[in-house]
């Protein structure tokens, strides 16, 4: 009998307070609790983290890299979304 595949989890670690959790890799584990333990042993052997998130990889919905253009290019032309688009007289000072 072929072995049942072990579920895959994505691992996110907060390295210091004040920083966001960041993706570091993945682990295989039967449940969330074991995924946390595996993530701790695999990715934090040298004090790399203060907090770990594990997320079932199947729960992540990702954008399609082939759709990169239609998704992100429109923002390139919207320069009025940046503060430097607006002219403020020098006398007004820093704004």
């Amino acid at each position: 009998m072929a072995e049942q595949p072990m579920p895959l989890w994505e691992v996110f670690i907060r390295s210091r307070t004040g920083l966001a959790h960041r993706h570091v890799g993945s682990v295989h584990a039967a449940d969330a609790e074991m995924a946390l333990q595996a993530a701790r042993d695999t990715y934090t052997r040298r004090g790399e983290g203060l907090s770990i998130w594990v997320v079932p990889s199947a729960a992540i919905t990702a954008s399609d890299p082939a759709e990169k253009g239609p998704l992100f290019e429109p923002t390139a032309s919207k320069i009025y979304r940046h503060p430097s688009f607006y002219e403020i007289p020098e006398e007004v000072g820093h704004m």
Partner: peptide
């Protein structure tokens, strides 16, 4: 030796992103 095991796991995970399963 524990590090070597960890290195194996980072690398298996990287290989799996190419569409091959751990099994």
């Amino acid at each position: 030796v524990q590090d070597e095991g960890g290195h194996g796991l980072y690398l298996y995970a990287a290989a799996e992103t190419l569409g091959v399963s751990r099994e």
